[in-house]
């Protein structure tokens, strides 16, 4: 490339060729973007077309039913909100804590390098494997049965690698000078991390958590593996209660023979997307707030 560039700069004939290549590259990139967007638009259009009719207040506040006209997603929606809440509560302290330890405190030796390698690898493990792990450890080992707690802990395991990695990168991006300045005036490492490093990293950490939760909210396989229920006509009143969740309810409806249930499934997908967007905008708001605080510092 370098030699081609030099030659091209000398001979204008080759300069034209360079421009053509550049244009081609830009068009190819645009095409790739449009293709992804197009697929998304088609999918979205199909779901809205099929599911719009299913949406109503009754659909949100009714329990599932064998009669499609009466069926709603109340228990699944509430189950998903519970799951997301509990997963956040478990994941944030563990994920951020692990990242802070690995970045700020842990000695750089073979053991931590090995741990680091494992965390990166865990991010690529198929979600059903986490389901099996959750079934063995939480459902059976800890006797949590098929409770929200078991589901949330399983989902936490699933997204922890993503959250830890993102938080580590956020911490790494904080300039070294901040730490040195703090330590130089006599602050301990803990004080430095608490008052200077973490606040700087918070916006990026939040992004990592959003990514993790967005993945967790749509996961079906691990929840089915731990035995989450497909038909639930009560609301969970605590973390030890049995539950269902939106992806499972959608999956159940989509596999029915009757077309009316397929419509409900599409409606369920719209609700799931709305919840996801709500979560994300909440997190983006938090992120903006955190960023503004940093600028004031």
């Amino acid at each position: 490339m370098v030699s081609a560039g030099i030659v091209g700069a000398k001979a204008t004939g080759l300069g034209v060729w360079r421009t053509v290549r550049e244009r081609t590259f830009v068009i190819a990139c645009m095409f790739a973007t449009l293709f992804a967007l197009f697929a998304l638009v088609v999918l979205f259009y199909g779901i809205v077309r099929d599911g719009w009719g299913a949406l109503s207040w009754d659909f949100i506040t009714n329990f599932p039913s064998r009669r499609a006209a009466k069926a709603g997603i109340y228990s699944a929606l509430v189950g998903t909100l519970w799951l997301m809440g509990l997963t956040t509560v478990v994941t944030v302290p563990l994920g951020v804590g692990a990242a802070v330890y690995l970045e700020e405190f842990a000695p750089k030796n073979r053991l931590t390098a090995f741990i680091q390698l494992n965390i990166s690898n865990l991010a690529g493990v198929p979600s059903i494997v986490y389901g099996l792990l959750g079934l063995t450890i939480f459902v059976r080992g800890l006797q949590l049965e098929r409770s929200l707690a078991a589901g949330a802990l399983t989902l936490s395991l699933l997204i922890l690698p993503v959250v830890i990695t993102a938080a580590q990168e956020a911490l790494r991006a904080v300039p070294r000078a901040y730490r040195e300045a703090s330590l130089a005036i006599g602050a301990t490492t803990w004080e430095t991390v608490r008052d200077h490093v973490l606040p700087q990293a918070v916006p990026s950490i939040i992004t990592g958590i959003i990514l993790g939760l967005s993945r967790a909210i749509g996961e079906t396989a691990p929840l089915i593996t731990i035995g989450a229920f497909a038909f639930v006509t009560f609301l969970p009143s605590g973390p030890m209660d049995k539950f269902t969740a939106l992806p499972i309810q959608i999956f159940d409806w989509a596999s029915r023979p009757q077309a009316a249930f397929h419509e409900l499934a599409a409606g369920g997908i719209l609700v799931l997307m709305a919840v996801l967007l709500l979560f994300n905008s909440l997190a983006i708001g938090l992120r903006l707030y955190a960023e503004r605080k940093i600028i004031r510092l």
Binding site: I224, G227, F229, F231, V232, K242
Partner: peptide, 8 residues
């Protein structure tokens, strides 16, 4: 009475 149904 709660009767949750799953499909494993």
């Amino acid at each position: 009475v709660r009767v949750p149904v799953a499909a494993s």
